[in-house]
């Protein structure tokens, strides 16, 4: 009797195990069904397509990046060209200002001449240059010698006048570019104006002429600082 009970229990347990496992399997199979295998292959293919797509997108992105870089380089090149143009322009302007370029424009020509018993001295010319600058002259030359930032006018032994180390002799032709009206009126004030003063005090011939087109040549010497150094702020 005892053996039969054990057997019954064991058979029951075995039935539990077998049927439970079978149902588990049924459930799995019904959920996954036979298309799962096909799905798996499809999944593989999909994965491959996805990876290819990702790769393609990456490459497209790379291409875009490179194109952007090329565009940037081109822009930079353009900018550089513009900058160099600007720099060239600025350089030209600065050269013109410094007197290293020939300039032309309207202005006045002042002529000073020695007389038999009265000479033109450096002081006369210096004063003239000063007056012209006061009246707004932008470029001045005396007998073709351009007045630049370090120009000097001095007498040499009472015989000659030197400008920028070059000897010049009478008649002295002073060309000045600027507003001719201002220049003329600045020089020809009555009595204490430059021209009258020269005539009265120094007894030298001074003539003034307005001209529409004066060309002033460039300074031919070197313009170099030897002691001064520019400070980069």
């Amino acid at each position: 009797m005892k053996g039969k009970t054990t057997m019954t229990v064991i058979i029951g347990l075995i039935c539990v195990v077998l049927v439970s496992v079978m149902f588990m399997q049924f459930k799995t199979i019904s959920r996954i069904d036979i298309t799962a295998l096909e799905n798996m292959q499809e999944k593989d293919l999909r994965n491959e397509i996805n990876t290819s797509k990702t790769k393609y997108e990456d490459k497209v992105k790379e291409l875009e990046d490179i194109n952007l870089k090329i565009a940037e380089f081109n822009e930079n090149a353009d900018n550089n060209r513009k900058i160099s143009e600007l720099l060239t322009n600025e350089l030209d302007q600065l050269k013109a200002l410094a007197g290293l370029k020939s300039v032309s424009g309207s202005g006045v020509v002042v002529r000073l001449e020695d007389r038999q018993n009265s000479k033109v001295y450096a002081n006369n010319l210096l004063e003239l240059v000063n007056e012209l600058k006061l009246a707004g002259a932008e470029a001045i030359s005396i007998n073709g010698e351009r007045i630049v930032y370090d120009s000097y006018i001095s007498d040499v032994g009472g015989e000659f006048i030197t400008i920028n180390g070059e000897r010049i002799v009478s008649p002295y032709e002073v060309k000045a570019i600027g507003n001719p009206t201002y220049l003329e009126s600045g020089l020809s004030k009555k009595q204490y104006g430059y021209i009258d003063k020269q005539k009265i005090e120094y007894n030298i011939t001074v003539t003034l002429e307005r001209k529409n087109n004066i060309t002033i040549n460039e300074y031919t010497g070197d313009l170099n600082f030897k002691s001064a150094r520019s400070i980069n702020s």
Binding site: T8, V9, I11, G12, L13, I14, C15, V16, V17, L18, V19, S20, V21, M22, F23, M24, Q25, F26, K27, T28, I29, R31, I32, A36
Partner: peptide
């Protein structure tokens, strides 16, 4: 015993978690 075992087994199997396809 067989009938009871089958019924219990069916209940357990229905409520058990799904086994992955690799092990089925």
């Amino acid at each position: 015993a067989i009938i009871i075992g089958c019924a219990v087994g069916a209940l357990i199997g229905m409520n058990a978690p799904i086994i992955s396809y690799t092990y089925s």
